[in-house]
Every structure is written in structure tokens, then in C-alpha cells.
Design a protein around this nucleic acid. Structure first.
Length: 271
DNA sequence: ATGTCCACCTGCTGGC
DNA sequence: TGCCAGCAGGTGGACA
């Protein structure tokens, strides 16, 4: 479920459950996801109090008063289930806190990851070190996009998905932002007109903020930890709408495959 | 460096 | 009803 707005929704949902609370028990139901869990994960977390629930790109960061930061990535199918009725098949890690709440990190496909590092080292973590600016932060804008797209042969779609250039965008929001900016997903980055890059610089934060306000997009999964569903998928203009009418011009939305992933776009509105 | 492709997993859907 | 192909929100590493 997780692009930037979904991870943001998850961390906002986790915050009232965890902030100021002490982990009383951390149960590992397997030893790894994409990568092995740190050996001492449970030991280091148990007894520690949560001081912050943050997000960087598509990573959730949970700081503790012991100077550690839990870094979690939800992969494709990861969810944080709060107070589940029962522990299920893919509840790989279960966190219990002093307030009696239970949070299960559930991830059927196991593309997610979990690591625990010193808070001071968190931004230097190999997973986070190379990630580009936050699209909702002060460093994002037309200047950054212009630099990122200049002289590039790679399609606009691929550049926006590259986490080293911009943090947090995934397949859905790239498709939606490109539609809003009138840019064809297959257009080489270096050939996108300056005016469209300016549109894109506005479209990216706009679509992300609208999605966050809607609680993210729920396709197969629950977006928020408390089980409430995000509803931004109702506002998609192109994603998943192959063969349906463009909201602007009625032309049928098309789908192409780029690097093995679907891109949805309006053949008339996007150039 | 840049661009492309595949592997990593499980689950669901739609067509036959 | 059953089977199977195709598809799914991501990323890291291998390759030319």
C-alpha cells in the first residue's frame, strides 16, 4: 500500500498509539523480511519509550529514548495493524506497549524491511543516505526538477520514480502528477518543456497533499493503522483507469508498460 | 554514469 | 467449481 501519502498516513495513525509509550514486548515471528532483522531488535526495543514517529521518503522512523531509531519500510503489501482481533499469518512482528495496545507489522509479500540503528546515524543509513529531497519540503521545486531532468534520456516516469532524485513517489502518484502536468510518461526527461516542468513542480506536491488529506489510497489494503480506509483512489484521474474516459477530454485512458510497470495516461492531454 | 531488466514473495481476479 | 495466467502500491543488484 505504500507511497509517500500512505506511509505518512500510517505514521500519523501510529503516533497517538505509540508516542510516549514504552514497548513492553516485541515478538519476532520470523527472522527476516527482505533482509534479516537485527539480532537484538527485541531486546533493544523492549523497555524503550517512543519519542517520535516520523517519515522520510517511504520509510517510517520511530525514535526511542534510548537513542535508537526503528526504520521500517512497508514494501508493496506492508500494513501496521493496530489492536488486531487475532495475530494472523503474515503478522511478522508484534509490538506491545504499556498502554495495552498491540501493533502487528503485517506484510504478505515480505518486500518490507525493518532495521534498528542509532538515531544519530539514521539519516546516514545506507537505505536513506542516497535519497533525494522531500517533495513536500523546502528543497523541492521547478529548479530541482529542471536539474534532475536536464539532458536525461530516461523517460519522465522513470526519473520521478528514482528515489535518489525525489523522495517518496511511486507508481500511482507519478502517473497522477504527470497527467496533471500534461507530460507523457515515456517522454525523455531532457525534452520536457520548461513550462511543463513548472506545472509538474506544482502538481507533485498538490497530488501528494490531496492524497494525505484523503488518508492515502486504499487499493487492496487498509491505509490507516486504525483500519479506516483512505479514499484518494476515488480521485484518480488516470491510475487504473485504462479504457475509461479522460476527465478533461473524454479520450480513453491508455496503459503502457515501462520497465515492467503499468503507466496510465491520456494520449490526448499528455505529450 | 546512465538506462534497463529481473528477482524477490503472496494473493487476488478474470477468463476459460 | 477449478485451474492458470496475469497483475499488484517497491527496491536493489546485475547487466550492457
Amino acid at each position: 500500500m505504500p507511497e509517500l501519502p500512505e506511509v505518512e498516513t500510517v505514521m500519523r495513525g501510529l503516533s497517538p498509539v505509540w508516542l510516549g509509550q514504552r514497548f513492553t514486548r516485541v515478538t519476532l515471528n520470523r527472522g527476516d523480511l527482505r533482509r534479516p532483522f537485527p539480532q537484538d531488535l527485541g531486546q533493544r526495543l523492549t523497555g524503550a519509550t517512543v519519542t517520535a514517529c516520523r517519515r522520510r521518503a517511504k520509510y517510517g522512523l520511530i525514535d526511542t529514548d534510548r537513542g535508537d531509531t526503528l526504520i521500517l519500510h512497508l514494501g508493496m503489501s506492508g500494513r501496521m495493524r493496530v489492536d488486531p482481533e487475532a495475530i494472523g499469518k503474515h503478522d511478522h512482528v508484534v509490538f506491545e506497549t504499556g498502554n495495552g495496545r498491540v501493533v502487528a507489522f503485517n506484510d504478505a509479500r515480505r518486500f518490507g524491511s525493518l532495521d534498528l540503528v542509532a538515531t544519530a546515524d539514521a539519516t546516514a543509513h545506507p537505505l536513506l543516505a542516497g535519497i533525494g529531497p522531500e517533495p513536500l519540503g523546502p528543497d523541492f521545486g521547478a529548479v530541482l526538477l529542471t536539474r534532475a531532468f536536464a539532458d536525461r534520456l530516461a523517460p519522465a516516469k522513470a526519473l520521478l520514480l528514482d528515489q535518489r532524485l525525489i523522495a517518496g513517489l511511486g507508481n500511482i502518484y507519478v502517473c497522477e502528477a504527470l497527467f496533471r502536468a500534461g507530460i507523457h510518461p515515456a517522454r525523455a526527461g531532457g525534452t520536457v518543456a520548461a513550462a511543463r516542468l513548472t506545472s509538474l513542480a506544482a502538481a507533485v506536491p498538490a497530488v501528494l497533499e490531496e492524497a494525505i488529506a484523503a488518508g492515502g489510497s486504499s487499493l487492496r489494503d487498509h491505509a490507516a493503522p486504525d483500519g479506516t480506509l483512505g479514499y484518494f483512489q476515488k480521485a484518480f484521474h488516470v491510475y487504473g483507469r485504462e479504457g475509461e474516459a479522460c476527465v478533461t477530454c473524454d479520450t480513453l485512458i491508455a496503459r503502457i508498460v515501462q520497465s515492467g510497470r503499468s503507466s496510465f495516461f491520456c494520449p490526448k492531454c499528455q505529450h
